[in-house]
Amino acid sequence: MASKASQRSRGLVILTGVLIVLWAVIASFPFLWTLWGSFKVQGDFFSKADWTNALSGTRTIAETGGYFTLNGYEGAWIEKEFWRAALNTMIVVVCVVVISLTFGTLGGYALARSGYRYAFWLLMLALVFRAMPHITLVSGYLLPFFEWGVWGRLETSIIVLVAINQPFTLWMLHSFFLTIPKDLDESAMVDGCTRFQAFRHVIIPVMWPGVITTGLFSFLLAYNDFAVTAVLLSQDNATMVPKIASFLGSTFEEGNVMFAVAAVVSATAPLFVLILFFQRQIVSGLTAGAVKG
């Protein structure tokens, strides 16, 4: 590291340090603040008089007697039945990830191993599909789904999310498969495997890093989606994000903004844990498309 090229003047080092610290604060402070505030009452989190109330918890102590309160969480999870939304999200996310990866590994493998021109055109078409705003597609489904009576069900949303996810999954897995030498599956086929057996027993075992990374992004797409689930799910089947959106209207009227704050923190927590454990995979996934594609 001490090579001549990386030597810097003291002034620049300090300037860079300050800028990076500033960025770190901009990136993380809103989350820390909201996490902290979610354990307070509304009078503290939205305190017009004095923002230090949120730190000292003046109103929280006056109203609940404690320094922290779980009122927001109780209201959201129990009174407003946020647990139901969390359960729905779990079902949707797990199904979307599993199905997306199954379809995606098969398709991505085929695209990486086919030397024909149509493979290139399929990838281009997938890129165009990737660019379609989700809400435009949703407006195409809505009327047929009403007619067939499949609107509002979790299964419908799952299959739609899988399809919307496919272009991205295909691109990513395709670029991962390209990094695996062709000789590997070809030698397996010389030894008498069929193409599918070679894929199943030789390629998939060495593909796990790529599959996990792609799975993470499928997870994020399904977990973070609002456009599809808000329009396609009925009130009872709502997942977390549309549920939070529906909180906004109702809780502002009742003065229960803290319910929404608690729900927001609850929905962010799993993502936090995800980055904690999978930071390396997320970074490598983001760059896979760029560096190789």
Partner: peptide, 25 residues
């Protein structure tokens, strides 16, 4: 033929839920 079988699930999903909706729209 092998290519077609491998790509089929993915292509079918994209056809039904991305291409058809565009026509439907």
């Amino acid at each position: 033929k092998t290519f077609m079988w491998f790509i089929l699930p993915s292509a079918l999903a994209m056809f039904l839920f991305i291409f058809v909706p565009i026509i439907s729209v």
